[in-house]
Every structure is written in structure tokens, then in C-alpha cells.
């Protein structure tokens, strides 16, 4: 974890368009952001794409960071990117289903996204939680932002954030015990 002074220097370098500073930022945050995307999508290929998209977007957006928690700001962008991805995927699924009903009335088995990957147990159980709860748990875990910041990011009262997180983690714990 970069110290505040180091982080301030790196962000300042990024704002000046310094490629080296962006490289440092990638080194610091890529692991956590990748974990966040992977736990939400369950797919390495999508996580690769989303991580790339995030850092390229960051080049254009870094000047709009006006201080405060950088992690909070960064993960808010990551969260928006994830929800955009989800919307695109849902639209694709709708189109795909419509096409399937029109042209392929017979049942066809399609390969799952993660068939070629080792799916760990946590990933399986996380998939049983609703998207909003899963995103909240991952946001809290990987961004390391405070509950206050997370509540602000999600535009909801802190009590709502806390109770949602509590319910989500309790459910996850039960699911993991039942495996």
C-alpha cells in the first residue's frame, strides 16, 4: 500500500500525463481491482477487459480527481464499469434469447463462461448472492474504503449499507458452511 505522500506524488504525476506515474498506479492497484472484477464476473477474460478499460479510462478522468479518498474514487469508477458491463451482458442475453427462439427451437447446450477455469468454492457461493450484495461485499473488501465512503458512493444511508453488508456476509458464511 502506497503511503499518502507517495500516492499524492503519483497522482500529481498522472495528472501531468506522466506515463511512469500511471505505471506505478497500475502496480499498486491492479491486483485489488482485478480481484474485485474477478469476484463479480467469475471470469478471467472479462476481468482482463474490465481492468484494461478502467486504467485507460483513468487517463482521461484523473484530472477530475479533486482530493479525498483516492481508493473510494477509483472503486466508484470500477463499480460504474462493472454495472455497464452487466447492462451490456443483459442486453446481449436478451438479443441472444430472441435469436435463439426465432432460429433455434431445439435446446442447445452452450459452454459456460468459466468452464475452462478452476472455480473456487467462494466464487460458486458468491454467485448465489444477488448482484447488489455481491458488489457491496467486494467493494468493501477490495477498496478498503470506510463504510461512510461506501454509503456515499452508493448514495444510501450508512445504516442501510451496514445492514446489507451484514446480511450478505452472514448468508455467504452459511453457504460456505453448507458446501
Amino acid at each position: 500500500m502506497a503511503k499518502n505522500d507517495d500516492l499524492a506524488r503519483i497522482i500529481s504525476g498522472c495528472k501531468s500525463g506522466n506515463a511512469e506515474s500511471f505505471s506505478e498506479l497500475v502496480d499498486i492497484y491492479s491486483s485489488r481491482l482485478y480481484g474485485y472484477f474477478y469476484r463479480l464476473t467469475g471470469n478471467r477474460e472479462s476481468s482482463d477487459d474490465l481492468l484494461s478499460e478502467l486504467f485507460v479510462k483513468l487517463v482521461g478522468k484523473i484530472r477530475s480527481f479533486k482530493g479525498g479518498s483516492f481508493e473510494g474514487w477509483l472503486f466508484k469508477i470500477a463499480s460504474n464499469i462493472f454495472y455497464d458491463y452487466l447492462r451490456d451482458k443483459q442486453q446481449q442475453k436478451k438479443l441472444f434469447d430472441a435469436q435463439k427462439n426465432l432460429f433455434e427451437p431445439e435446446e442447445v447446450t452452450y459452454a459456460k463462461e468459466s468452464d475452462d477455469e478452476r472455480i473456487d468454492e467462494l466464487q460458486t457461493q458468491l454467485g448465489k448472492l444477488d448482484t447488489d450484495t455481491r458488489e457491496l461485499i467486494m467493494l468493501r473488501f477490495y477498496s478498503q474504503a470506510s463504510f461512510k465512503e461506501i454509503a456515499a458512493m452508493r448514495s444510501e444511508p450508512i445504516g442501510t449499507t451496514l445492514s446489507k453488508l451484514h446480511r450478505g456476509l452472514k448468508k455467504l458464511q452459511k453457504l460456505m458452511e453448507q458446501k
Binding site: 506515463a19 500511471f22 505505471s23 497500475v26 502496480d27 491492479s30 491486483s31 482485478y34 480481484g35 474477478y38 469476484r39 478471467r44 476481468s47 482482463d48 481492468l51 484494461s52 486504467f55 485507460v56 487517463v59 473456487d120 468454492e121 467462494l122 466464487q123 461485499i137 473488501f141 453488508l165 451484514h166 450478505g168 456476509l169 452472514k170 455467504l172 458464511q173 460456505m176
Partner: peptide, 28 residues
């Protein structure tokens, strides 16, 4: 909450490939 956190810590997500990181840096 603490129990839930422990579960998350024990099952680490995969790390991004070095190749991916190099690609991202080149893209930037």
C-alpha cells in the same frame, strides 16, 4: 462481519497476468 471477512481473506482471487499488466501499461 468478522467471520465473513475471514472467508474472503482465505480464498484469494487470482492475480492479473504479467502480460495483461504490460499490455495495460502500453495502452496507457
Amino acid at each position: 462481519i468478522e467471520k465473513g471477512e475471514r472467508i474472503l481473506r482465505e480464498s484469494a482471487a487470482p492475480e492479473p497476468d504479467d502480460e495483461l499488466i504490460a499490455d495495460i501499461k502500453a495502452e496507457i
